[in-house]
């Protein structure tokens, strides 16, 4: 038999991924996830929005969130018309109109720019600005390229080391 690195049990052991792919690792950071309650009417609004495809369910039936895929972005909670989603602390999420969802405002004076926000965004709605929009010498700065895709999760703001991003709903800024 061909020698293979697949031998031997190391630490947490093996899982054959061809049968069942997802195994909980010993160091999973986000074991808690959002959950859908019985109130769910199976409209499917959250399924379309979930950036990681964690929600499954038949139309007009109770939907389910895969806790191993959920990244706690909270989009399902904000979109749900019947407030059937509980967050990781068990608190029922409040429904917010899509056009009132918070969006990132980037302060270019504080921005380094390092690109952490762009890589953090789960829906890839941030991008480096085209050179036309440059504000300082040759550095490209991030901007909200596709604001319709933004789900208002605020990951960009929380991961920005220099606090250059603030989340605010359009009604406040307009």
């Amino acid at each position: 038999m061909r020698s293979s690195p697949f031998k031997g049990e190391v630490g947490g052991g093996w899982a054959n991924l061809t049968e069942q792919y997802f195994i909980p690792g010993p160091q999973r950071g986000y074991d808690m996830s959002y959950r859908i309650t019985e109130t769910c009417n199976g409209c499917g609004a959250c399924v379309k929005l979930c950036p990681v495809g964690a929600i499954t369910g038949e139309k007009k039936n109770l939907h389910l969130i895969d806790s191993l895929l959920c990244i706690d972005c909270g989009a399902c909670g904000r979109i749900c018309p019947v407030t059937a989603v509980k967050d990781s602390f068990g608190i029922v999420c409040e429904r917010i109109k899509r056009n009132a969802w918070e969006k990132p405002q980037i302060d270019l004076k504080t921005c380094m720019p390092c690109g952490i926000c762009i890589e953090t965004c789960p829906v890839n709605c941030l991008a480096f600005a085209e050179p036309v929009l440059l504000v300082r010498e040759l550095h490209a700065y991030p901007f909200l390229k596709e604001d319709k895709r933004c789900i208002g999760c605020g990951f960009c703001a929380s991961e920005c080391p220099v606090h250059a991003i603030t989340m605010s709903s359009p009604s406040v800024t307009d």
């Binding site: 697949f6 630490g11 947490g12 991924l17 195994i23 690792g25 010993p26 160091q27």
Partner: peptide, 17 residues
């Protein structure tokens, strides 16, 4: 993640702390 290209197989290995 281990990817065995010969047999097209994937395996996940948990690495101890």
């Amino acid at each position: 993640l281990w990817v065995d290209l010969t047999v097209n197989e994937f395996r996940e290995e948990a690495i101890p702390a």
